[in-house]
Nucleic acid binder design. Structure first.
Lengths: 173, 173
DNA sequence: GTCTATACCCGGATAGAC
DNA sequence: GTCTATCCGGGTATAGAC
C-alpha cells in the first residue's frame, strides 16, 4: 500500500471518529506524521481527498447491498445497517456535495442495481423505496425520532407497503 | 414589528438566498445596517438566531401541511412543494442540528399530526411515509436523481404503495 | 444600542529552503 | 517529500468609548 492510500485510510478513520468537521488538512497531516503543507505533495487539494472518500463510501455501501439476500426486506436491512455502522461515511456519500465529476462512471448505478432488481425493474418504485430508506436513515441519524420509537416496526411497515401483492403489478410476466 | 423580528426576517432572507454558509453574524449585521458586535445587544449568540429560524421553518411547514387537502397524496404534494420552495429553510428544520431545547414543545407533533391522521393513526406507517417524503425531498434537492427522472411518478408510486387497500388494514373500524 | 478595535479560534493553500 | 514561515480568508465573541 502506497503512502497515498495510507493517507486516505487515515482520513476515513478521522471522518468516522470526528465527522466532516474534524476532517481538516491539518488533522489528517498530524495523524499521518507530517505537516499540512506536505499533504499537497500527495494530493492537489482537499476536494480530491473528499472525492476519494466518497468513492470508498459508495463502494462500501454497494458491496453491502450486493451481499444482502434477495428481497426488499434484506436490502433495506443492509442499507440501514451500513448507514448506522458508518454514519459519517453515509452522509458523505449521500449528501449534497457529491463530487460527481471525480467519481468513476457507473458506480452510482452499481449501488442502485440490487434495489432496482428487487422491485422488478420498476424505476418509479425503486426511487420511492430509495427515498424511504434514505429518509428513514437520515431521520434516525439526526435523532428526529423519539428514543422510544420502534424503528424496526416503521421499516417493516414501509417495506410491507412496497411488497404488498397488488402493488407489484409492474412485474406480471 | 420590533428590531429583533426584523433581524430574524433579514436572517431568513439571507438563509434563503445564500444557504447556511452565508448566514454569518457579519452578513446579518450588514443587511441590518449595523456591525456584527451590535447584534449581540439583541441576541445572546448565533444559536439563538438559528433556533428562531428553525421555529419559523417548522411553523411554516406545519401550516402548509395543515392547509393541504385530505389524503396522503395532497399531503405529500404539500410537503414536497414547501421543501422545494424553501430548500434552505427545510434543511434547517430537518437537519441534525435541531435546537430542540429552544423550540416550543408540541411544535414537532403539530407538524406531524396531519400525516398521522392520513394513515389512520398507524404510527409505524406514519414514520415510514415521513421517511419516504423526507428522503425523496433530500435526494431531489441534493441532485441525486438524473435530471430526466420523473419524480412526480416516483412520488405517485410511493404514495400509492401506502394507500393500497390491504395495507390500510390498520383502520378497519 | 451603536460604534471601533480587537482577541482568538478555525480553515485551505503557497513559497521557498533543505 | 519534508519542513518552516506565512498569507489569506472565514467565523464568534468581547471590551470599552460614545
Amino acid at each position: 500500500m502506497n503512502r497515498r492510500e495510507q493517507i486516505i485510510e487515515i482520513a476515513e478513520d478521522l471522518l468516522d471518529r470526528h465527522g466532516p468537521e474534524g476532517l481538516s488538512m491539518r488533522a489528517i497531516a498530524e495523524r499521518a506524521g507530517m505537516r499540512a503543507p506536505s499533504l499537497y505533495k500527495h494530493f492537489p487539494d482537499k476536494a480530491t481527498i473528499e472525492a476519494a472518500l466518497q468513492e470508498r463510501a459508495l463502494r462500501g455501501l454497494a458491496a453491502s447491498l450486493s451481499r444482502a439476500g434477495d428481497g426488499l426486506g434484506a436490502l433495506g436491512a443492509a442499507y440501514r445497517g451500513w448507514a448506522l455502522a458508518h454514519p459519517h461515511r453515509y452522509a458523505l456519500s449521500s449528501g449534497q456535495a457529491l463530487h460527481r465529476d471525480r467519481l468513476p462512471i457507473g458506480l452510482e448505478d452499481a449501488a442502485a442495481a440490487p434495489l432496482l432488481a428487487a422491485v422488478g425493474g420498476d424505476i418509479d418504485r425503486a426511487r420511492a423505496v430509495w427515498g424511504m430508506a434514505h429518509g428513514l436513515v437520515e431521520l434516525e441519524l439526526a435523532g428526529r425520532f423519539p428514543s422510544a420509537a420502534d424503528l424496526d416496526a416503521a421499516w417493516t411497515a414501509g417495506i410491507d407497503a412496497f411488497i404488498s401483492p397488488e402493488s407489484s403489478k409492474a412485474t406480471p410476466g
